[in-house]
Design a protein around this nucleic acid. Structure first.
Length: 320
DNA sequence: CACCAGGCAAGCC
DNA sequence: GGCTTGCATGGT
């Protein structure tokens, strides 16, 4: 005996006594038990691959096979149990409006991996096998801009620490599972701070970039919504007009905040692994590596970049 | 102590 | 245009 529970742009939900069942056109089946949403048969989804490949800085391990983090002002714990992905203590509304897109659940990563390894390239075969469950998160643009300004000449643990301090000091608090979490502070909130106020986050020389960027957004000189609609070259140019954002950081923002999957950011890790795997370990100019990647990976450059980045870090390739 | 970290801006030539 | 240098902070 089924009854229609609710209907969204992405799913039709049916009520079956205590459990809501639904089916989506993209592979997976979804089951809602109490306030937990179970993704059954979700392919190409490994929490460690998604949250430990340096694309986002606000999700952290939480016990065995679980991560907890905040995005779009909402906190969620995601676990992996017996092949099911469980989003804990969330709602259908948040799943549809936030987490479905954030986790990029509408994209077929098997197809992407097949395409990247189609030519039998042993490098991509290996990279894809290491990070088989990677998905590129669709993150909030403002947060991505500031996060990657902070990333410049920095290491991932410290980037995470600085962002956490930024949020806990200046974000808005909310409660999730009896603990307090903080949203990413708005441009308006940051713009009203002084450099001295901001010094508590220990961002070093990047503090002035953060402040300047926030003020540009608040004044309207920088319109992030307009950038979303721009073709990639124009969007990149607009991003690079921001103090503290250069070639590499803008490529990261294009990929992680603007969904431009062809963007191939070349950082020290990517430079090393590309030289090691494709240039006989001979140092190359960043521009050479970019052009090689664009030609080889084309529209899937960003995807390839994430598999390579994860692979390089897992294997410490290029380090000695 | 030096060197490095998901680079960038500014100052040179 | 391309190349060099200083930069805040924390870890090894």
């Amino acid at each position: 005996m089924f009854a229609v529970f609710t209907k969204s742009k992405k799913f039709d939900y049916f009520l079956d006594n205590s459990a809501h069942m639904c089916y989506n056109k993209y592979i997976m089946e979804t089951k809602i038990i109490d306030k937990d949403i179970h993704l059954i048969g979700q392919k190409d989804f490994v929490l460690q691959h998604i949250f430990d490949c340096g694309q986002c800085f606000r999700f952290n391990p939480c016990g065995e096979n679980a991560y907890i983090g905040t995005a779009f002002g909402k906190t969620v714990k995601i676990s992996s149990v017996n092949g099911e992905i469980i989003l804990h203590d969330t709602s259908i509304e948040d799943f549809n409006n936030v987490w479905y897109d954030y986790l990029d659940l509408g994209r077929d990563y098997s197809n992407i991996k097949n395409t990247l390894t189609r030519d039998g390239d042993p490098v991509m075969e290996k990279a894809v096998s290491y990070g088989s469950g990677i998905r590129i998160l669709n993150q909030e643009l403002w947060e991505t801009v500031i996060s990657f300004i902070i990333s410049a000449s920095n290491n991932i643990p410290r980037i995470k620490k600085i962002i956490e301090l930024l949020c806990s000091n200046f974000g808005e608090s909310h409660t999730y599972q009896d603990s307090i979490y903080y949203s990413f502070p708005s441009a308006e909130r940051i713009a009203e701070l002084s450099l001295e106020d901001l010094s508590v986050i220990r961002a070093g020389f990047r503090d002035k970039y953060i402040l300047s960027c926030a003020k540009k957004v608040v004044s309207g000189e920088l319109d992030l919504e307009a950038i979303k609609a721009m073709p990639t070259p124009e969007a990149k140019k607009a991003l690079m007009s921001i103090w503290g954002i250069g070639n590499k950081v803008s490529d990261c923002i294009l990929l992680f905040g603007l969904g431009r999957c062809d963007s191939f950011p070349v950082d020290v890790w990517i430079k090393r692994i590309m030289e090691y795997c494709y240039f006989d370990n001979v140092p190359q100019a960043i521009k050479t590596i970019s052009e090689f990647a664009d030609k080889k990976f084309g529209a899937l450059g960003g995807m390839a970049q994430q598999y390579l980045f994860f692979y390089a870090r897992e294997c410490k390739i290029g380090i000695n």
